[in-house]
Simulated assay, not measured.
Amino acid sequence: MVAPTTLVLLLAVLVVLYPGWLNRILIDPFPSPSPAKSAVLISGTSSGLGRNAAFLLANNGFTVLGTVRSAEDADKLRDAWKEVQHASQSGEIIPIKMDVASDESVAAAADDVRALLEERDLDLAAVVNNAGVNGQGPVLSRAGTAMSYAWTFNVNVFGVVRVTQAFLPIMKESSGKGGRVINVGSVAGVISQDNSSPYTATKHAVEGMSDAWRRELARDDMSVSLIQPGFIASNMCDSPICDKSALPEFSNAVLHAVQDPYPKTRYAVAAVVVMPAWVAVWVDSILPDRVADWVIGHISLE
């Protein structure tokens, strides 16, 4: 008979060396949505990461409900989609007007989506919480005031809560068990940067929420994944270190989290300066705090 301590050691070795295999041994696969019968809601698709992910999902056959804040943004999204859509696929992008910072706007959008799904006989397969803002400012500055924290939290944290709570019931109604929630966090949710505490604090909060939701929603065969982008060029990341070529890596992570039977719990994508994001996250986890502070303090982000 194998001793309990030996079993614990064997399990620890498996966790470290073979996480993918262990996942398949212990965890049942999640239901995979059929693109032709499924819609995916993505918040914040007027530009950048959200728009690119919307294009990829639609070109893989999904009906993408891309949220925007204005009629002008909706028209721009439609026009941009016409330029990149692949005729061989049946996917589509439908702009949905929604402001994640407003209870009323999110509720109205949920009503619109419910009616649209019924009209087209589609299931809501996934919700991608992508919309966000980049609250910046040192703690001893006007930019770092409580108002900056409140604004950033209202979009990046409470917006994620609003959207998820509004659309989870629709996902359950339309598809029964199953469904995916994908939260877009940031490497900043693990590696804090000076002068950006409002943004960093929100992304740390999204990390914690995603872990808690994942354990809670697993009872309904619903997957929760967190994407942790590094420095990808967008409206929120416009310095020379932000890499536009990393957009496909982000979008492929969203697609995998939406449809793979074994979605990852975390996707660290792109790079932090010259280091792959997943390596940066791992290195930060093993360095002593003061050493990590010294390293980050000597890296130029200009």
Rank of each mutant, 00 (worst) to 15 (best):
P4R: 13
L7G: 09
L9P: 00
L10E: 10
L10A: 15
L14I: 03
P19A: 12
G20T: 14
G20C: 09
W21R: 08
R24H: 10
L26R: 09
D28H: 11
A39C: 09
V40H: 02
I42Q: 03
S47N: 10
G50Y: 02
N52G: 13
A53T: 06
L57A: 06
G61E: 04
T63C: 08
V64D: 04
V68P: 04
R69Y: 01
R69V: 03
S70Q: 04
E72W: 00
E72K: 11
D75A: 12
L77V: 15
R78A: 09
V84Y: 04
S90C: 03
P95E: 02
I96K: 01
K97S: 12
K97G: 02
S105P: 07
A107M: 09
A110E: 04
E118V: 00
D121R: 14
L122M: 07
V128Y: 02
V133Q: 03
G137L: 05
V139M: 11
L140R: 11
T145P: 00
A150I: 11
A150P: 00
T152A: 06
F153H: 10
F153A: 12
V157H: 05
F158P: 02
V160C: 13
V163A: 03
V163N: 04
F167D: 01
M171G: 06
E173Y: 07
E173V: 05
G176Q: 04
G178C: 09
V190R: 15
D194L: 12
N195L: 10
S197F: 12
V206W: 02
M209I: 15
S210L: 08
S210P: 10
A218T: 06
D220L: 13
M222W: 00
M222T: 13
M222A: 05
L226Y: 08
Q228A: 14
G230V: 07
C237D: 12
D238P: 04
K244L: 12
A246G: 00
A246K: 10
E249P: 02
F250Y: 14
L255V: 03
H256N: 07
A257I: 03
Q259E: 11
P261H: 05
R266P: 06
V272C: 10
P276M: 10
V279G: 05
R290S: 14
W294D: 06
H298L: 09
E302N: 14
